[in-house]
């Protein structure tokens, strides 16, 4: 092996990419060639230099701070981002918990709100268990907002009681975002957490305000929680599906 090949293979030699035969040939050459031995020395010096790039590790407190900040910022941004993915058009009957009808701005302006909005609640039978999951304190609430036509730039606000939190947004009691509602049913999935110790047999209220073109309306979403004993998983909870129909 000559100097040219050895120089070409020198990094492979150090990086252990060279074959056994090549390693042996290179070492034989290096034992007899002062010039190539200098190149070896140069590469060793390089490795010695580059490994001075040591980095002092972060403390556990710094790591925790990074994670806290990332989670907090992600939660805040998810609310803003939600407007692009919050709703999907469709109609799902058995899985719907709250059903609201909201008319457009012109109708709102023409008709007094208090006289026209009625809210009714309907509890479905037990075959809704598969769609209303409540696992380890996490309750899944489905809300369907029905609108007669497309409504762009609707502002939605949810006000939660202290003991109810949205999964992933635990810090926020008031959640607001702007979205577009499409004609027909618009679904919203709310994974909620209820603090231990809260009486699950009484009705809980989540205030939802819908604002559209300088008009707003607040709905009190009545949520019934009934304890149902599950032999496999212990005391699990099921949210009965509910419909709140509003009509104008």
């Amino acid at each position: 092996m000559n100097c040219e090949i050895v120089t070409e293979k020198l990094e492979d030699y150090f990086d252990r990419f060279a074959s056994e035969d090549e390693l042996e040939a290179i070492e034989t050459h290096l034992n007899t060639c002062g010039s190539c031995a200098q190149n070896v020395e140069e590469h060793r010096n390089y490795l010695s230099m580059i490994q001075r790039f040591d980095v002092e590790p972060l403390t556990s407190g710094e790591i925790a701070r990074f994670l806290r900040k990332a989670k907090s910022t992600a939660s805040e941004q998810s609310v803003i981002r939600a407007q692009h993915m919050f709703f999907t058009k469709g109609f799902v009957a058995a899985s719907v918990l709250v059903f609201a009808v909201f008319l457009g701005n012109q109708l709102i302006q023409q008709t007094p709100v208090n006289d026209t909005v009625t809210i009714t609640q309907q509890t479905l039978d037990d075959n809704t268990e598969t769609t209303s999951k409540v696992l380890q304190g996490l309750h899944e609430v489905n809300v369907v907002i029905y609108v007669p036509r497309n409504m762009m730039g609707v502002e939605l606000v949810l006000e939660l009681p202290d003991y109810i939190a949205i999964d992933g947004l635990e810090e926020l009691q008031n959640i607001s975002w702007t979205t577009d509602l499409l004609q027909g049913a618009n679904q919203l999935l709310l994974p909620i957490f209820i603090q231990p110790g809260v009486d699950l047999n009484r009705t809980h209220t989540i205030a939802a305000t819908i604002g559209y073109k300088n008009e707003s309306r607040t709905f009190q979403l009545q949520v019934d929680l009934n304890t149902i004993q599950d032999s496999k998983q212990g005391a699990n909870l099921f949210l009965h599906n509910q419909f709140i129909n509003t009509s104008i």
Partner: peptide
């Protein structure tokens, strides 16, 4: 229930932390 879009993750935050924490120092070093 098919077709429902949820923006909320059902994964608890502490699980995320336990996955990420062991790698943060290596990522910081890089």
């Amino acid at each position: 229930m098919n077709g429902i879009v949820s923006i909320f993750s059902r994964t608890r935050g502490d699980k995320l932390e336990s996955i990420l924490s062991p790698h943060i120092n290596d990522l910081y070093s890089q």
